[in-house]
């Protein structure tokens, strides 16, 4: 499903100041209906604060937030047609799985609650767990319940605050794929906060990379990865070489560099890290260190301390602002 171009959540020059610090420093975003949009950035960059302002748990000191063209400033949390999925799940401990999921439906006076709850639990693959209490579920199962509870009322958008952050790597990978599937099935707008660049790149339609309360770049995963707006974005979304060429600083990803028989760039192998499918080689060239990504099995042929030549696809390099240091 292609994201439609209708705006769902719109932020305009949002500022939030807490104890003198500008946590959000003029953030503007347009999130389209049906889009999987990620806010990516290091901790403290303001991504969670922005999400909490949209949910209504916090309010901006300046700027506006809109949902489907309606200004949210005067809409209290419980009247915003948005649901949140928390990193800590925040399930109701005194209610079983069925009643947790039914909570929003009951408040809305919804009809055919049992059927809707069953559908939502089917969607998150938790059918049969209706009568269990949250305390008896694993972390992954609890997060599935939280997800079912959030989608069952079919809100206009879902806000997800590092929902997989507390889970182990394998579970996280599986749930990433599932979240994406569920989002596509429902065609619902997802606003996803994460500090994990792989997560953002693999799941999103578009990503906003944030730092220091500002949006550094908004774009598709491919654009953010291959044409980062600045050095911060380049380094945050993946490994990168920053080198001087023809008197200018340019950036190039490790996978655009190869080990060659001979070339004008020759260096000494500093270290080799094996990651299974790929190996990452650090090569000292003069004062600079180059990162080179090669197929994993080839890592065995590289001798630490040996001399290697580097072939570079300069077409994949991009210039950076600022004079060479």
């Amino acid at each position: 499903m292609n994201p439609r171009s209708r705006p769902s959540i719109v932020a305009k020059d949002v500022v939030r100041i807490i104890e003198g610090r500008r946590i959000l420093d003029g953030v503007s975003l347009d999130i389209h209906e049906g889009e999987f949009f990620s806010l990516l950035g290091p901790s403290g960059c303001g991504k969670t604060t922005l999400l909490r302002c949209i949910a209504g748990f916090d309010r901006p000191d300046a700027g506006t937030l809109e949902l489907d063209g309606v200004d949210l400033a005067r809409v209290p949390t419980h009247r915003r047609d948005l649901n949140m999925v928390f990193q800590s799940y925040a399930l109701f401990p005194h209610l079983d799985v069925f009643e947790n999921v039914a909570f929003g439906l009951r408040l809305a006076g919804s009809s055919s609650i049992a059927e809707k709850v069953r559908e939502a639990l089917d969607l998150v693959s938790l059918a049969g767990a209706e009568r269990r209490k949250p305390a008896t579920l694993s972390g992954g199962e609890q997060q599935r319940v939280a997800l079912a509870r959030a989608i069952v009322t079919r809100p206009k958008a879902l806000l997800l605050d590092e929902p997989l952050g507390a889970l182990d790597l394998k579970l996280r990978k599986g749930l990433q794929v599932e979240l994406r599937r569920i989002q596509k099935t429902l065609g619902m707008t997802f606003l996803y906060v994460t500090h994990d660049q792989d997560e953002a790149l693999s799941m999103s339609d578009r990503i906003a990379v944030m730092d220091g309360g500002k949006v550094r770049q908004i774009g598709t995963p491919d654009a953010v990865y291959r044409r980062p707006a600045d050095e911060f974005v380049a380094r945050f979304v993946g490994a990168v070489n920053v080198v001087v060429r023809d008197g200018r600083r340019v950036a190039i990803r490790p996978e655009a560099v190869r080990l060659a028989e001979s070339s004008e760039i020759v260096g000494t192998v500093d270290s080799v890290s094996y990651f299974g499918a790929r190996s990452l080689v650090r090569v000292a060239v003069g004062d600079a260190t180059w990162l080179v990504e090669i197929p994993g099995s080839m890592g065995r042929n590289v001798v630490v301390g040996g001399s290697v030549a580097l072939a570079v696809d300069w077409a994949d390099a991009w210039p950076l602002e600022g004079a060479p240091s």
Partner: peptide
């Protein structure tokens, strides 16, 4: 659990 009240408000509880 942390965020419990927020979760309830978020789901439409006054």
């Amino acid at each position: 659990p942390p965020r419990l009240a927020e979760a309830a408000a978020d789901l439409g509880a006054g």
